[in-house]
């Protein structure tokens, strides 16, 4: 039928144009990069096949870590208020309570061995450079000792209830630098301190789920340098589950009406379909009188 032919021509022209200005242009402007690697296989300083000794790890952590790091879940509170900690170290040192749950084992072990190479920040903290990363490398520890520490951190990580886990992970993994104003959350490191430490104020992430989209965030959090070479954002080493929790939290805050949108959408389309069918039947009745 002629009208279907016209419709097909229009659909083809619109389809070609759409393909050019959306998927194709997007592909040209944002070339695909390699998939996220949650095993961090470029890090090979520590043999992670060694079984850690939790008891020994506890002793090592208490001797080496808690002077700077809080571990609330193991009864070690922060040594000073956030503002003072930021003034001393540049940034508030993380509470390690959730580190055993959030971070990939291989990443965590290699981070302890040498934080700068694990974070891929050697362009910012070159060996022998003027600036040093606030946490020293524990490359003097034996692989066994490092795995003991990792084992201890995994043992103290508290179980978090399903409904809270997204926010808890965000706060622990991102919240020292990134505010989330649409959730009324302010980064724990004071504004001026974090700006001086990072070189620029880390962005508020309220709308990042919309401006960057899930796909980009998925790659970017896993390896920032790959998508934004030279950025001072560290590779944070989240395992796949923790990263999904962070992105889910960004969506809860940045696109809070998604569920409502999708359910209302179906009803509106159903209503419109009924309207369209009735309109078609009415049209057939009316036009049968004039044809």
């Amino acid at each position: 039928m002629k009208e279907f032919k016209i419709l097909a021509i229009i659909a083809a022209l619109v389809g070609i144009t759409y393909y050019g200005i959306e998927p194709y242009a997007h592909h040209v402007m944002h070339p695909e990069v390699k998939a996220a690697d949650f095993t961090f296989k470029d890090l090979k300083n520590v043999d992670t096949s060694l079984a850690g000794n939790t008891e020994n790890g506890k002793a090592l952590v208490e001797a080496n870590c808690i002077a700077c790091h809080a571990i609330e879940s193991a009864g070690h509170p922060a040594m000073m208020p956030n503002a003072d900690a930021a003034a001393s170290y540049g940034v508030v040192p993380p509470d390690l309570s959730h580190s055993g749950r959030m971070y990939d084992k291989n990443y965590l072990a290699n981070f302890i061995f040498d934080p700068v190479s694990a974070m891929k920040l050697s362009h910012k903290y070159p060996v022998g450079g003027a600036k040093a990363f606030p946490m020293p490398a524990y490359n003097w520890m034996t692989p066994q000792e490092i795995m003991d520490v990792v084992s201890y951190l995994q043992s103290v990580a508290p179980k978090v209830a399903e409904k809270d886990v997204n926010k808890v992970t965000y706060d622990a993994a991102c919240g020292r630098c990134h505010s989330m104003s649409y959730a009324k959350f302010e980064a724990t490191t004071p504004k001026d301190a974090i700006k001086a430490y990072m070189g620029a104020t880390p962005p508020d992430l309220s709308q990042y789920i919309k401006s960057r989209k899930e796909h980009y965030l998925h790659g970017f959090i896993n390896d920032p340098q790959l998508l934004l070479a030279g950025t001072s954002m560290p590779r944070v080493g989240l395992n796949e589950k923790a990263q999904e929790e962070v992105i889910a939290y960004m969506e809860e805050v940045g696109d809070s009406k998604k569920a409502e949108r999708e359910s209302v959408g179906l009803w509106v389309m159903l209503y419109t379909l009924v309207f369209a069918i009735l309109a078609y039947l009415w049209k057939r009745k009316i036009w049968s009188e004039v044809h």
Partner: peptide, 27 residues
């Protein structure tokens, strides 16, 4: 007569439009 045909076209157009509104708005 004329509007009955328009309403029919409108119905199917709105179906497309609301699909974009709810599910495919990035463009």
């Amino acid at each position: 007569v004329f509007l009955s045909k328009d309403f029919f076209v409108l119905g199917f157009f709105l179906l497309f439009f609301f699909y974009l509104v709810f599910f495919h708005y990035d463009f």
